[in-house]
Write a protein that binds this DNA or RNA. Structure first.
Length: 794
DNA sequence: AAGGCGATGTTTTTT
DNA sequence: ACATCGCCTT
């Protein structure tokens, strides 16, 4: 301990007077990553190599060495969960000083904070609202319908995803390249511009805008950028492999001054390419930041050597990677187990019994708690078989990643009312709840209101007031609308002190000049809003089985308000922090997707459904070709490396796919597992494994030497080849020729959808009317001209 | 304004 | 197979 102090840089020596507990127990690489404070640093952290540890130690080091104040460190994560975790861990080293880390958060939360300060530079007020995807979709749909476009063929969903992708790439409407001009029936950019204009008039922005507006501001206002560069003296980025282009630009802008940026990530765990993540960002880091210090964390503290070997072998099949070699000091442990089943139900049955055995503690292994075990699936529909089975045998389980609390209908409705109370001029909010509960204000009444609002150029609430004055809405609807408007005005006044003063006050006078005041606390106000609006009552009168649960959720929502000072603060939080992590403390088996499992670890992991088409997913390969396959392989890598002690991979010979039974081929990833580290098990009733009569692990999962032989593996390899090979071959044949060949009217062939005719060409995508399966958008390289279909090897 | 019916699409998910 | 959605009927 005493002699290393002499070698440390000045800052650290100054610190040596105090102990530096955060350096204790770091391995040499971690230590290097912690101590290389200045200039660009890339920390390539393999699975289970203590990345968070190094990252938090680095923050602690920056602070205790006096390089930066807490408020001068920008620490960016992707999820709120990761941000919380980091805050917690840094707090462990620093105590209360973490509270000063005002800029530790997600890209979006930090961007929102920045944007509130400079909103006017992009035509927004600092009180702008952040739209959720419901609002976004509703808005786009209006735009599409206003143009009299068939929203069947050109759905708002498609437009939303196109615009999202563009925003992910950092393109504002005027920056969308010409190559995208054909998107959305040649009108994509036009709609994008219209959408942005509409957002601006609503004083709103979507998630993509949070980043994009920041970029716009930074690019246009050197002085502002400069001041933020000065403030953020050190930048840390977690999960850098998941950044998209917009996030990359955002980071570059902030880091390009001092270049004190430390990016942490693992190219082998990049599994979000489909939503815009660019692995290229991490692969390119050294070129982007010349002279960067690159640290590889390769010592794994999580898994047994067999598990690591299996994971390493699988991921070695990828071309596009920086390359790391995980190693561990651990000597012993179970091999990765591989087992085939007759069908998906049997797979679920077997895993259920296996879990019970492991829980009980058979076979000389210590018993595992249920919450030490997890089942990781490729697609959520696989979960069903497990849920069914576990319900019948009474095995407690928890599904992680289902619909989230704040996405439930009743929660969104309730929050929409809160939104109206805070900003009565929020047209999207008004639209959403004007007839929820039913107030007799159907399409016709709503159109009347729209008409009045548009004609007078005022928000919908005011349009509604005008329509009432004019007597344009009659009867029951009129009375109910009057009541709603009075309510909104009353709630707004009650929320008064907490709302940025000004704008809405005149509006309130217009819609309800003689309203009273009401509740004191925002919690009382919230309850009152739900009561007076009739929303609670609506669910009380609802006879469907889910109604009681929804009422419970509403109570929970009210409870959640307690930790906020006012409604506006709460809404901001919810817009950005839409998570619902169960605490994991009760003893249940976890069922989740491979994506959901990233960043987690479990002593015992089951990886079912390793079948070609399911995993790797056919769609991924169809849509993204070899790149897609590589991403699937990374997913396999993520799955295996979640396991600490026991990892069991399985596949079924038959599986029901969309109601049809299908014969399944074992995944090509099964062939990529290293035989020396895998133990092949035989299920009961097959290959002589049956008849032992017990449900012990020995009896059900016999060591099946006959099937552990090279011959068995070769047999498997031979079987899966006819499936996997032609797909790759096909792509090679077709690529290159694709762009030139297709024009509207050409008859084409697609391996899955059969024959069809090209209706439209949109860049590299074709809109094809398939003879059997109807119209579809298809990437051109996956179809061949019909007259060449026979040349395609099968 | 509610309920029924046929068409439709079915990987992964955050903010 | 199955759930969801939009439209259509009552």
């Amino acid at each position: 301990m005493s002699d290393f102090n002499a070698d440390l840089p000045l800052s650290a020596r100054a610190m040596a007077a105090r102990p530096a507990p955060y350096l204790d127990g770091l391995n040499p690489e971690q230590r290097r990553a912690v101590e290389a404070l200045d200039g660009p640093v890339l920390m390539l952290a393999g699975a289970g190599t203590g990345k968070t540890r190094a990252l938090t130690a680095r923050i602690a080091h920056l602070l205790s060495s006096g390089r930066a104040w807490p408020s001068q460190i920008l620490a960016v994560t992707f999820t709120n969960k990761a941000a919380r975790e980091m805050k917690l861990r840094v707090g462990g080293y620093l105590g209360d000083a973490v509270e000063g880390m005002a800029w530790l958060g997600t890209f979006h939360a930090i961007s929102a904070k920045l944007l509130r300060r400079h909103a006017e530079l992009v035509g927004l007020k600092s009180s702008f609202t952040i739209l959720d995807s419901d609002d976004q979709l509703r808005l786009l749909k209006q735009l599409i319908q206003a143009e009299n476009i068939d929203d069947k063929r050109w759905p708002a969903r498609l437009l939303a995803s196109i615009i999202d992708q563009w925003k992910n790439r950092g393109w504002r409407p005027d920056q969308v390249p010409a190559s995208e001009a054909s998107a959305f029936n040649n009108r994509g950019t036009e709609f994008y511009a219209a959408y942005q204009a509409r957002l601006q008039s609503l004083n709103a922005c979507d998630f993509g805008d949070l980043l994009l507006h920041c970029i716009t501001i930074f690019q246009a206002h050197a002085d502002i950028l400069e001041s933020w560069r000065k403030r953020f003296r050190y930048i840390l980025v977690d999960e850098y492999q998941d950044t998209n282009t917009a996030q990359y630009l955002w980071l570059r802008l902030l880091a390009d001054g001092h270049k004190n940026i430390c990016c942490v990530g693992d190219d082998d765990q990049s599994i979000y390419g489909w939503r815009g993540a660019e692995v290229g960002n991490i692969l390119r880091f050294e070129r982007d930041f010349p002279g960067a210090t690159v640290v590889r964390l390769e010592q794994n503290y999580r898994s047994t050597p067999h598990i690591l070997a299996a994971a390493s072998q699988v991921i070695a099949g990828n071309e596009d990677r920086l390359g790391k070699t995980l190693w561990t000091e651990a000597q012993t442990g179970e091999k990765v187990r591989l087992i085939g089943h007759w069908d998906g139900e049997e797979e679920a049955r077997w895993i259920g019994e296996e879990i019970e055995d492991l829980h009980r503690g058979t076979r000389g292994l210590d018993p595992f708690a249920l919450n030490q075990m997890a089942i990781l699936v490729r697609a959520s529909h696989q979960m069903r078989a497990f849920e069914d089975r576990f319900l019948t045998i009474g095995l407690p389980y928890r599904v992680i990643g289902g619909p989230r609390f704040y996405e439930r209908m009743e929660i969104r409705d309730a929050m929409t009312y809160f939104r109206l109370a805070v900003s009565p001029a929020d047209d999207l909010a008004f639209e959403r709840v004007v007839n929820t509960p039913r107030r007799g204000l159907g399409d016709k009444a709503q159109q009347t209101i729209q008409g009045y609002a548009r004609k007078a150029g005022v928000p919908l609430v005011q349009g509604a007031a005008l329509a009432l004055q004019d007597g344009a809405i009659k009867g029951k609807g009129a009375a109910a609308l009057r009541e709603l408007l009075d309510g909104i005005a009353r709630w707004h006044r009650a929320a008064g002190g907490t709302v940025p003063a000004g704008a809405a006050d005149d509006l309130i006078e217009v819609i309800a000049p003689e309203g009273g005041r009401a509740a004191q606390s925002h919690i009382e106000l919230a309850e009152q809003i739900l009561e007076e609006s009739g929303y609670t009552e609506m669910w009380q009168n609802d006879k469907t089985p889910e109604a009681p649960g929804r009422l419970d959720n509403l109570k929970e929502l009210i409870k959640a308000l307690e930790s906020f000072e006012n409604l506006a603060g709460f809404l901001e939080h919810v817009a950005l922090v839409m998570d619902n992590d169960s605490d994991g403390s009760d003893d249940k088996v976890s069922i989740m997707t491979l994506h959901g499992a990233k960043g987690l670890e479990f002593p015992v992991v089951f990886l079912p459904g390793w079948e070609d088409g399911l995993f790797p997913s056919q769609r991924s390969m169809d849509e993204s070709g070899p790149k897609g396959l590589e991403e699937e392989r990374r997913l396999a890598y993520v799955g295996i490396t979640r396991a600490e002690q026991l990892c069991t991979i399985s596949f079924a010979a038959n599986r029901r796919v969309y109601g049809q039974w299908q014969a399944q081929m074992p995944s090509r990833f099964v062939d990529e597992l290293p035989a020396a580290h895998v133990e092949v098990l035989t299920p009961p009733g097959l290959y002589g494994g049956a008849g032992m009569g017990h449900s012990s692990v020995e009896a059900r999962a016999t060591r099946a030497d006959a099937y552990n032989s090279p011959g068995w593996r070769r047999f498997q390899a031979a079987q899966s080849r006819p499936v996997s090979q032609p797909i790759a071959a096909r792509n090679m044949v077709i690529e290159g020729s694709a762009q030139a060949v297709f024009v509207a009217g050409v008859r084409v062939f697609h391996q899955k959808f059969g024959y069809g005719r090209v209706a439209e060409v949109e860049g590299d995508k074709l809109f094809i009317e398939f003879e059997k399966s109807g119209p579809r958008h298809i990437v051109a390289k996956f179809v061949v001209p019909a007259d060449q279909a026979d040349d395609v090897p099968f």
